[in-house]
Amino acid sequence: MQGVSRQQAGREAESYALLYLQQQGLRPVAQNWSCKRGELDLVMLDGDTVVFVEVRYRRHSGWGGAMESVDFRKQEKLIAAAQLFLQQESQWASYPCRFDVIAIEGEPGKAAPLNWLKHAFDS
């Protein structure tokens, strides 16, 4: 992905993750949902469960891997954003919820390893 901006690489990683999750039977609810607390990369429906998916992309793992970058501080921001999402999108408020992380290292879509961690953390 030489010459591609970090934002473009992130968008490609999210598209790759979205396609993968859809192939696993999940249905999209929202993408890049923003609020004052942060952003939710993907909000999906897995059966009757609302899944908040954080997509992390690292071209190289020299500064730590993609999965490790979802630290406690990031988890708190995701939980706060998810709470606001459920308040503003009240049709989903009574559904069970979970937080997943998809970590991609390498070049998205080019046989890059995709690691899907379901129930990555609790709120």
Rank of each mutant, 00 (worst) to 15 (best):
R98D: 04
E89D: 03
G64Y: 12
A13S: 09
L114A: 13
H60C: 07
G47T: 06
Q23I: 03
S123Y: 09
D46M: 09
A66D: 11
A80I: 02
Y95E: 12
V29D: 05
G3E: 03
W33H: 08
G64C: 11
G3R: 09
L45I: 02
V70K: 04
S94R: 14
F52W: 09
F85C: 00
K36M: 12
R27H: 09
G106E: 06
P96C: 13
P108R: 10
L42I: 00
A81M: 05
S5V: 12
D122Q: 08
V51R: 08
C97E: 13
Q24W: 08
Q2S: 14
R59Q: 15
Y95H: 15
G38T: 03
F72E: 15
T49H: 07
V29C: 03
Q22D: 05
A120W: 06
A103M: 12
D100Y: 04
Y57A: 08
G65S: 14
F52R: 04
K110P: 00
Q8R: 09
R6L: 00
G64D: 13
G3V: 04
L117W: 10
R58L: 12
Y16A: 04
A17L: 10
N115F: 10
D100N: 01
G106N: 12
K36T: 13
S69Y: 11
L19E: 15
P96D: 13
A17D: 04
D48Q: 14
N115S: 09
E89F: 07
E105M: 12
G106F: 13
A30D: 02
E14F: 09
Y57H: 15
S123M: 12
V53D: 02
M44P: 15
M1L: 13
F52N: 03
P28F: 01
N32M: 02
N115W: 11
L84M: 12
G25S: 10
E54P: 02
A66K: 06
Q88L: 06
K77L: 13
A120G: 04
G64L: 07
T49E: 14
L40E: 04
D41I: 11
L40V: 07
F121T: 12
V101Q: 05
Y95N: 14
S15A: 15
H119M: 02
P96G: 14
F52V: 10
R58N: 14
A13P: 01
A81R: 07
P96T: 12
L40S: 04
A112F: 06
G64A: 07
L26P: 02
R59L: 13
G65P: 00
A80R: 05
Q83I: 05
S5P: 00
V43G: 00
E89A: 05
A80G: 04
A9C: 07
Q7V: 08
M1T: 13
A80H: 00
V70Q: 05
E76Q: 15
S123E: 15
L21W: 10
Q75E: 00
E68M: 08
A17H: 10
P113E: 11
L45Y: 10
A30V: 00
Y16L: 09
A66W: 03
D71S: 03
G64H: 08
L84N: 07
Y95R: 11
C35M: 05
F121M: 06
C97P: 01
R27Y: 01
Y95I: 01
I79N: 04
K110A: 10
L19V: 05
V70L: 05
V70P: 03
R37L: 12
S69H: 13
P113R: 15
G106W: 14
S123P: 15
S123T: 14
D71Q: 03
